[in-house]
Amino acid sequence: MNQRSNFIIDTYLMTKRSTIAIFRNPFIFIPNIMISLFFLLVYQAGLSGISNIPAFEGASYLAFILPVSIVSGAIGGSGGAGQSLVRDLENGYFSRLLLTPTSRVAIVLGPIIAGMIQLFIQTVLILLVGLWMGLDIAAGFGGAVVVILLAAGFGLAFAGYSVGFALRTKDAQASQAGTFVFFPLVFLSTTFVPYELIEADWLKFVSKINPTTYVFDGMRSVLINGWEAQPLIYAAIVIIIICSITITFASLSAKRAVNRD
């Protein structure tokens, strides 16, 4: 019991610390949210005409492109978890934490949860901007909640990846480079047009195996069509699979980082 309440306090403290660090360094979260909003505004402004093509089945392009903005924000935001661990490793604070009786899991969990908080605020903000631009969520408020949950799930998976990468390389440049996976993840998918409209066969193939496609599908289904089981189940399964992979990777890397031999 004592052990568990200590763990909760440790995790709370570590999360609080990382959250303070994020919000005191506006350069960490402002560029990220700007990029997401930029995507939303620019793609909507420049591409919304193509939603007149029959393959869009009358969907609003705003609802179609909004998930791209949210997912790119989620990836950027949760990538911050790894960055913050690298900073700890470089400025020696990580060692200081290891020298306390603090739970090792809490030390790694703190930045991840803080990243999730950042992601949540960001997603809500993008949704609000979307609503202000005239977005009509087919599944209503529940649909908005689903969008947030999917963003959080996908963000968690990416946080696991970035934390694992950070702990393995222990180097700011290397872990920065690791976030470049962002580009294939976001853009080699049904990013701008539905699957049927993708021209190149290779891109069709890649978008099929890209987990982001299923997250886009899940979000779009609640934004455009209302409640449909299949896309949501697929999105959930994909998120569970990649989360288990990246979080395992993160824990193995964490074990190595605190290894005493």
Binding site: R17, I20, A21, R24, N25, R87, D88, N91, G92, Y93, F94, S95, R96, L97, L99
Partner: peptide
């Protein structure tokens, strides 16, 4: 124990 390592261990944002 209390430990001061060679490199100071401080989070500069706090």
């Amino acid at each position: 124990i209390g430990v001061a390592l060679q490199e100071t261990g401080i989070d500069p944002s706090l």
